[in-house]
């Protein structure tokens, strides 16, 4: 069984983003870029399925500019067998990405396609569900537990109010939530090995996909800042302020 994982290159989790002064977006020049954290969890889950003998090959896919090669090399260093870059400098929105991933899925025919539930830059939370729609496959979003047996996947999902478990037929799209696993670290010998692993490049044109953005960003602004209030001396002072100043209790 083959597993595909999609990965996105995003501004690193620890970077405090700055809105550009001309309001066109967020400063990404000279900013540390990393693999989207939910995608690290996706890679890890695919590797664990391979280590358990369920999956025989793990292929990492990324869509975006040439620099995404670095992120794919990270996936290879983590243990993916090979990588595919769909290279374009166009701004990619989730619908376009899901169309590209669908085209790759058509070529690769995986039984399972694991996707991070959300990218921490645009916070859209769409690509996995859209990919499931376009392939016509089943979907299990926000997965915190995944078991594959007898041609089915049993997935426990993090939902409002608790957990829900569904059983879905394969091939399937899984989107990862935080508690699915704890991703491993990249080691130096594996970084060296990753350099020799195959990384193929495709283009949207070759895949016959129109990636033109549908949403036009008119402006990006910083949200109004919350002002820090005051420290209060003790519990009595706090309760007094809440009752008589803020009047919220």
């Amino acid at each position: 069984m083959k597993a595909l994982v999609s990965i996105k290159r995003v501004v690193d989790y620890n970077v405090k983003v700055r809105v550009k002064s001309d309001g066109t977006g967020v400063e990404t020049a000279n900013v540390k870029m990393s693999m989207n954290p939910f995608d690290e969890i996706a890679v890890e889950e695919a590797l664990r399925l391979r280590e358990a003998g369920t999956v025989t090959e793990v292929v990492a896919v990324s869509c975006g500019p040439l620099a995404c090669q670095e992120t794919l090399r990270t996936a290879l260093a983590l243990g993916a067998d090979r990588a595919i870059l769909v290279q374009t400098d166009e701004e990619l929105q989730p619908l376009a990405v899901s169309k590209l991933l669908k085209a790759v899925a058509d070529k690769e025919a995986p039984q399972i396609f694991i996707v991070g539930k959300q990218a921490i830059d645009d916070d859209s939370n769409q690509t996995g569900q859209m990919l499931a729609a376009l392939t016509g496959w089943s979907q299990a979003t926000f997965a915190s537990k995944l078991k594959i047996a007898d041609g089915k996947a049993e997935v426990t999902r993090e939902v409002d109010g608790g957990l829900a478990t569904i059983r879905i037929s394969l091939p399937a799209i899984i989107t990862t939530d935080l508690r699915l696993n704890e991703p491993r670290y990249v080691t130096l010998p594996n970084i060296m090995k990753a350099k020799k692993k195959p990384l193929d490049t495709l283009t949207p044109e070759a895949l016959g996909v129109d990636v033109k953005p549908r949403l036009k960003t008119l402006k990006v602004v910083e949200p109004s800042k919350r002002k820090a209030g005051a420290k209060v001396a003790d519990a009595a002072a706090l309760v007094d302020k809440l009752r008589n100043e803020a009047k919220v209790i």
Binding site: D123, T217, V220
Partner: peptide, 16 residues
């Protein structure tokens, strides 16, 4: 809509 964990607010126009 908020992006980057609410550290920026994007105004977007849809053509769909």
């Amino acid at each position: 809509r908020p992006i980057y964990a609410g550290n920026a607010l994007a105004t977007v126009q849809s053509s769909d």
